[in-house]
Design a protein around this nucleic acid. Structure first.
Lengths: 341, 341
DNA sequence: GTTAGCACTCAACTCGATGGAGTGCTAATA
DNA sequence: TATTAGCACTCCATCGAGTTGAGTGCTAAC
């Protein structure tokens, strides 16, 4: 037995209806709801088949049917076409704030949350290996040295270093030159002992400062290793009865607050650059087995990606979500492209 | 009618018991629970008095009594003495991470949440008026200028400025000197039109760059205006039945996520530097009318304060919370004092 | 002033009845 | 052969009645 045209239509009707109402949907509803002109009895037979095929399930005998994960999957795969409308105000809101990566992404998360009414996640850019682009030392006052380290992708890091002894202007200038000469273009793995030895040799009497500096640089680079994840609208999940159950909600909210376990979720399939939909068990995060997760990948520059996504109930307006993510992704791409020009 | 010794003891017993069980407490319980050797009938009479005085209330007739806000207030004011034990592991955990203000404070929030099982808030330092301490311009590449702005309290801000036309090394040097000469030591309000005019005059042909720079500086200073608030353990509130009610929990979690409205709460009474306890309506945040908030003020340096606090149910182990906050406050004070040496 | 006793109140729980939505099956129909 | 009408059945949700138990307030006695 395979899915024919009619079964597909009925399945679609069931899911559509369930998405709207959140209640199990019965045969009579479908009979009236669709333009198939079939009696409820016929629908019942078909639904029985669909259940056997695993696309829908009954919460209990004598209840209507609700879609299974497999049903949702089919729905998402086949019946969904993107819609690229509304959400225009996002654009304006975004452009206002496009100064700082952090606040931008946080803003994106919030906008998405407000627009979709789901919980949202946004990751910052992931770099494969971050290279040092530029280093600048300055004496802020007699006791403190400020190291500004610019990494590939214009990530700027600051470190305050306490000074044992005051350094002269000339010393600082010299350090700046030496550091930039030897470290520019290198990433963590390339700054090895031989480079360090050469550095210290060139720095002459300032070797001890170099050591501290290298520590700071190493820290700055590795700091970024755990990519930041921004979340917003976590409380939205309380709006959906099937998720606001005590235990489920508590786990989910904790997960969203902690964020750590989300990295796994968001790192899956990074080679695929379209929209990804994870339904129920597909998410790999245990506490989300009653949720669906939809993510999109945006591109900052060649080879550097971040992700935006939402977490909501399986009963989710997939069409709208995918559309929204699609437009948002496009807009983010544009912003970064523009910023580079 | 005033509170005599016995009424106080009974009130104390009621509150203690209620804190433990979360259930309204009846006269028989108190009769057995305390060492007063009074029958339940007598207790009933006393409880009747206490209710009349407004220290306790009945959720409904024929239910036990629970403390009113006024009752909690008395309890907190009179019967609480700090206890400075446990929480030693906090110390270790903190010292590990004392490198970066942000992560330190986030860590503090988390530790506090784990230790108390309540939702926690921590604010970063608040400066009355932030002055420019130091400005450094550098050309990262041909098209971008990096402005590093150091504010009072060693807050470092970075701004990337796109360049219309390439600047020579000499121009940048000149700009650096001019900027530092005229802006160092000034705060937002002091950078007025006359200062700006003088700046542009000195900068000669670079007036247009100056304008952009000033925008960036203004942004850097004002950016910090809304003090960062770190929260943790928000989901803890779901552990308390009286708060996990749908509407209440949703509002609370939203408030904790948004953080904005919390500033008001945390800015009250900043002149008082001890532990503050807000019960129910006292908090000024509407959604917290069923909560208590306990805050402590820590000192980073002379005149610069931040706050740590927890949000939990009115039925809260006040003694423990106050103790924990007290020790944490002390430890934070120590860390910052040490860091300065 | 304290206590024992008793009537009263109220929330929480149990239990059964009822109704409605929905199914599965069978027999009739096109 | 596919569709439909009809019917018996199942199960959840809801409602109301009855019960229980904790707790109170009052009164009279100690």
């Amino acid at each position: 037995m395979e899915l024919d045209e009619r079964k597909l239509k009925i399945l679609q009707a069931i899911i559509k209806n369930y998405l709207e109402t959140g209640e199990p949907v019965g045969s009579r509803t479908i009979s009236k709801f669709t333009d198939l002109n079939l009696s409820s009895a016929t629908i019942r037979n078909e639904m029985s088949d669909l259940e056997e095929l695993g696309y829908i399930v009954q919460p209990h005998t004598s209840a209507g049917r609700i879609p299974s994960d497999k049903g949702y999957r089919l729905y998402v795969d086949t019946m969904m076409q993107s819609r690229m409308q509304e959400v225009e105000q996002m654009w304006d809101a975004l452009n206002d704030k496009a100064d700082k990566m952090e606040s931008l992404l946080q803003q994106v998360a919030k906008l998405l949350a407000v627009n979709t009414n789901y919980a949202t996640l946004v990751t910052g850019p992931q770099y494969r290996s971050r290279k040092v682009k530029f280093i600048q030392l300055t004496d802020v006052d007699e006791t403190q040295l400020l190291a500004v380290i610019v990494l590939e992708g214009n990530i700027v890091k600051n470190k305050m270093l306490p000074l044992a002894a005051e350094l002269s202007k000339e010393d600082i200038l010299k350090l700046n030159i030496v550091l930039n000469t030897y470290l520019t273009g290198l990433d963590m793995s390339e700054i090895n002992l031989s480079v360090i030895a050469k550095l210290k040799e060139q720095a002459g009497g300032l070797g001890n400062v170099i050591s501290e500096l290298l520590d700071a640089i190493a820290q700055a680079i590795s700091e970024e290793e755990d990519i930041p994840i921004y979340t917003s609208g976590a409380t939205n999940i309380l709006k959906y009865p099937e998720l606001s159950d005590h235990h489920v909600a508590s786990d989910l909210l904790y997960e969203l607050e902690e964020k750590k376990s989300l990295t796994g979720l968001l790192n899956e399939n990074t080679e695929e650059h379209g929209i990804q939909v994870y339904i129920g068990q597909e998410t790999s995060v245990a506490s989300m087995k009653d949720c669906s997760v939809v993510t999109a990948t945006y591109e900052i520059e060649e080879g550097i990606y971040g992700r935006i996504g939402i977490v909501g109930p399986k009963r989710m307006d997939y069409e709208k979500v995918v559309g929204t993510l699609q437009t948002l992704k496009t807009q983010l791409d544009d912003i970064f492209k523009k910023n580079k020009e």
